[in-house]
């Protein structure tokens, strides 16, 4: 595992250059506002905290009045809710899903288990801190947090999105080497995903000094190009 602890490193916030055209600024603000008022969350739940989501979505607490609705595939979604402990096998799927979501994307860790392993601290099969593997925007602690807490957390995320502060998805590109290193530590050096993160980082111009490193070198040496699946009846 790499030794640097990323939890305190902030995304290097380039001061967003105010564009000279006032209409462009208005437009940017409109888009951020709409982003905060329309969040599609992925229908993917891990662990026991998922039990608190149906009451948060249905008649008692009704998330739709905040513009939050469930969506089915990662391509359509904006927020990924990790609702509890992630076993190592689940973590692979979480990372695959996370990488396929379209930017800007937000991750919320619900439950104590995502913060520090919670009551699964001694388990050999559970990932302890979620933000060693993917960047997390917001944690909602509790074992398990009640729907009020979940909605409160989502409202905090909305406030962060509205002011353009929820930028953790950029952290994944800027510090890809760190996240990849931790993933390789758990899954072995053969670990690769179908998404080309380094290429995406270049596209978004988010490639920083920490994007490439020793772990991405390992990835390059083992990476196989994707092949189409064999068709069988």
């Amino acid at each position: 595992m790499s030794n640097t602890d990323l939890s305190n490193i902030e995304v290097n916030q380039k001061p967003v250059a105010k564009r000279s055209n006032p209409f462009a600024n208005v437009f940017n603000e409109l888009v951020s506002f709409c982003r905060s008022r329309s969040m599609f969350m992925l229908h993917y739940c891990t662990g026991c905290g998922a039990i608190e989501l149906p009451p948060a979505m249905t008649s008692r607490f009704d998330m739709e009045r905040l513009g939050i609705q469930p969506m089915v595939t990662p391509r359509q979604a904006d927020i990924l809710l990790i609702t509890g402990y992630v076993s190592i096998k689940t973590l692979k799927r979480v990372i695959l899903t996370y990488e396929q979501m379209g930017a800007p994307k937000y991750v919320i860790g619900i439950c104590s288990c995502t913060v520090n392993g919670g009551m699964y601290w001694q388990s050999y099969a559970t990932a302890k801190k979620l933000d060693e593997y993917i960047p997390v925007d917001l944690y909602i602690a509790g074992c398990m947090p009640r729907p009020e807490a979940v909605i409160e957390g989502l409202q905090q995320l909305m406030a962060k999105i509205k002011t353009d502060e929820a930028n953790s998805w950029k952290k994944y590109y800027e510090h890809y080497d760190y996240y990849l290193g931790n993933q390789q530590h758990l899954f072995g050096n053969n670990w690769q995903t179908p998404t080309d993160i380094i290429g995406e980082a270049k596209t978004y111009q988010l490639e920083g000094p920490n994007t490439l490193g020793e772990h991405t070198k390992i990835l390059e040496s083992v990476q196989r190009p994707l092949e189409p699946l064999e068709m069988k009846l």
């Binding site: 409109l30 709409c34 008022r37 329309s38 739709e64 009045r65 513009g67 379209g102 930017a103």
Partner: peptide, 25 residues
């Protein structure tokens, strides 16, 4: 379903947000 339902401009918010996404695959 005995819920409150979305606010007045929700359909517009959804569309603007989707067009404003950074990743367009």
């Amino acid at each position: 379903q005995r819920r409150v339902g979305p606010p007045l401009f929700q359909p517009l918010f959804d569309i603007v947000k989707l067009y404003g996404k950074q990743t367009q695959i």
